[in-house]
């Protein structure tokens, strides 16, 4: 049996999870929630993580019913993400690894999402759509790499949603995306927005600028309701994502789609992807907010795979990195 503890804190969530051979023993998490209209800044987010990380670590051990001696490896997020929060989490991971005499393992955050999605859904070799506040990529596995077939050329889809939420002061609790999703259900009028798929890639910054420009005018003149804007934005963004995912599937001859990342728990996105999959006779895999949204168990799971294939990270090589592409990692645990 191999037990891995995973530390995640690359954005506004801090999570610590423990995995024993595919079984999630504990996965506590805290979210730094800012007032409506405000995003989360690196130094404030790091302060939030510092204030709660040791409590979360205690919870993770208690809920799993384990002692430090039962753990085989300490995994943490090496990147990508915001620098200050990443350092906070890495400091604690390095310190406990030394106190407990356990090997350390730096994990790519994106790989964490993919491996957690594969574990939970049992999807074997899916085309992966990874959508969150910081990342938007269509990924497929080939020859020991998770290869990026398409991605955003500017901001992430979740960042587009988050920043739209700030414009019309939608609450960030529990997340801006969740609240947009609920409001979109009450939308009836479709407002046409730019649609920007460029080959295999997508662009969201122009859509954001456009909706930022027109939102207040349309709302104050009564041309449409906030719910209509939420609905229209979701339909436009998600159509683009489904389009590039379908093209990647056709290219790879893939019959499976796995959606991971925080935006992946949006049920409307899952529904639209499901329609496309049904038309192609393909299967859709998705998870709920426990595992889609950043969490510690996903880092533990990727760490488990890496550790079992013989990888460890020496302390002097354990620096964090804000940029760390999914395809930089050699996948030593898959054929």
């Amino acid at each position: 049996m191999t037990v891995v503890i995973g530390f995640e804190g690359s954005a506004n969530k801090i999570g610590i999870g423990i995995i024993r051979d595919g079984e999630v023993l504990s996965n506590p998490r805290r979210t730094y929630i800012t007032p409506p209209g405000q995003g989360f800044m690196p130094s404030d987010t790091a302060r939030h993580h510092r204030a709660v990380i040791l409590t979360v670590l205690k919870e993770a051990l208690e809920q799993a019913g384990l002692k430090p001696a039962d753990i085989d490896c300490v995994a943490y997020t090496k990147g990508p993400g915001m620098g200050a929060p990443l350092v906070t989490v890495a400091l604690v991971a390095r310190t406990v690894a030394q106190l407990w005499g356990k090997p350390l393992l730096g994990v790519n955050h994106c790989i964490g999402h993919i491996e957690m999605g594969r574990l939970i859904t049992q999807a074997n070799n899916p085309t992966v759509l990874y959508v969150s506040g910081g990342n938007t990529q269509v990924i497929a596995y080939s020859e020991r790499r998770y290869r990026i077939f398409g991605e955003t050329i500017d901001i992430a889809v979740g960042n587009c949603l988050d920043r739209f939420a700030r414009v019309i002061k939608i609450s960030n609790d529990p997340s801006p995306g969740y609240n947009i999703e609920q409001m979109a259900k009450k939308g009836s009028q479709y407002v046409e927005l730019p649609y920007t798929v460029k080959g295999m890639d997508v662009s969201f910054s122009g859509i954001l600028s456009y909706i930022e420009e027109v939102a207040h005018k349309m709302l104050s003149s009564g041309q449409c309701a906030a719910e209509d804007l939420c609905f229209s934005l979701q339909e436009t963004l998600f159509s683009m994502l489904v389009e590039i995912t379908e093209r990647a599937m056709a290219h790879c001859g893939s019959q499976e789609v796995l959606i991971v990342g925080g935006v992946g728990c949006n049920l409307r996105l899952q529904e639209m992807m499901g329609v496309m999959c049904k038309e192609r006779g393909a299967k859709l895999f998705a998870t709920d907010e426990r595992f889609c949204i950043d969490n510690g168990a996903m880092i533990a799971q990727a760490g488990w795979e890496m550790f079992r294939s013989g990888q460890v990270t020496e302390l002097e090589d354990s620096w964090i990195t804000q940029r760390y592409r999914t395809d930089e990692v050699e996948v030593t645990w898959r054929d």
Binding site: R50, P68, T88, L91, V92, T95, V96, L99, W100, G101
Partner: peptide, 20 residues
């Protein structure tokens, strides 16, 4: 200094170090 405090706090809560 902020990072140092966090490391010391971690040692206080999850130490002492096991003998290796």
């Amino acid at each position: 200094l902020v990072h140092l405090s966090l490391v010391i706090e971690t040692m206080d809560m999850f130490g002492p170090a096991v003998s290796q």
